[in-house]
Design a protein around this nucleic acid. Structure first.
Lengths: 211, 211
DNA sequence: CAATTTTTTGACCGATTGGACAAACGTTAG
DNA sequence: CTAACGTTTGTCCAATCGGTCAAAAAATTG
């Protein structure tokens, strides 16, 4: 997909500094949101002055936009990998696992995305209704095929995808709450393995007691 | 629980105007976050001047604090209702239904809460580790009892509660995304009934095809 | 070296922010 | 009526915001 944005040629130093800024901006934006973050905060986190930062990104929004476009690519990678080859139940299980791993390894990206959606997705609405919808529709069709073939239970594929997104991203977006509720004992590093075990069972068998 | 905050006596007009402000602030805070919202925005939404608003709430934070405390009470009501009387599977099913109804009927409250948690819960952290944890632990114990009695499948009660929160609140917090992906046809008012049907099946039977 | 280009910074600007304050307004009680 | 009290607003302020600009500093080139 051509976004119409031409990437100008850049020196090696420019590339590195831009990466430094994006890394700092990810940290700041993901915890304070777009409007809650200041250029000064990002500049300080990147170890440079505000005018210097503005030399690499002319506007605050440019940083955010670059971050969002880059994010969406990696963020949807697990769903893109979901395909018709292999056992359906295994395919879904590994999709859930991959999504949970992303929540564990890239919580800032998850929160950045959540912040944007929460506030009405003013900056990426076209992407949601376009690229994202197309991708989800495509994968929903695959899942529907599995259902018709009797490989998995018949249900709504779109809401199934929503539920996978919701349950996995919850461990990144609501991390403070999860850790607060689990307490110091169970809220440690093991919480992701516990979550993985639980989700596997939920999506496989549900809660009905085994006959 | 005594918060230590004394509620001063207020005239009838003060009560009404304060309600008006809180209603407006809920609208603004829930879509822009705390730092992204301005007193002017809230004042305009409430149909009064900024100094007039500051006559009823001395500081911007006072409005947010009042909103958050009030919110937590109503927000946790469904979980409080979960008790040992009645059939476990029915209890859980109606908890899920009630939570989904709250996401449908009070999306602004859900988003206000999500905004706060996303940003590290700086203003309600003690409540999470205190009141909330106590309540969840208590209900987790009840659920554990059901598991021991063989009434529902054995799994992690805490993560079960997380998954119910995540899947239901998703329809409030990520509403724009849900509607964008479902498209104009399926993204209409019926989406909550579709979600209810799906979630019921997921939590009951999971995805494994019926033998 | 000198000339040129790229990078960095201090100083500054207009706009917006949360909030203060006194004066004006409205209402009610005597 | 008038005095007292509760309510509303216009004006103002210091702090912070995103962003500009010229000039200094550093790096690159010849």
């Amino acid at each position: 997909m051509n976004t119409g944005i031409e990437a100008p040629r850049r020196t090696r130093i420019q590339q590195e500094k831009r990466e430094l800024i994006l890394e700092a901006a990810l940290e700041v934006f993901s915890t304070h949101g777009f409007r809650g973050s200041t250029i000064d905060q990002i500049a300080e986190a990147a170890g440079m002055s505000k005018p210097n930062l503005l030399y690499y990104f002319r506007r605050k929004e440019d940083i955010h936009e670059t971050l969002m476009h880059r994010l969406l690519d990696t963020w949807l990678a697990p769903l893109r990998e979901l395909d018709d080859i292999g056992d359906p139940m295994t395919e879904l299980r590994s999709y859930i696992r991959r999504k949970l791993e992303m929540a564990r390894d890239f919580p800032r990206e998850s929160r950045l995305f959540a912040n944007e959606i929460l506030q009405g997705a003013p900056r990426i609405m076209p992407l949601l209704a376009g690229e994202l919808k197309t991708l989800v529709d495509e994968k929903a069709a695959i899942i529907k095929g599995w259902m018709r073939a009797g490989k998995i239970a018949k249900t709504d594929p779109w809401h199934l995808i929503f539920s996978i997104w919701a349950t996995t991203q919850h461990y990144a977006d609501f991390d403070v709450q999860v850790r607060a509720v689990l307490g110091p004992n169970r809220g440690g590093d093991g919480r992701f393995e516990d979550a993985a075990r639980f989700l596997e069972q939920l999506f496989l068998d549900g809660l009905k007691p085994k006959g």
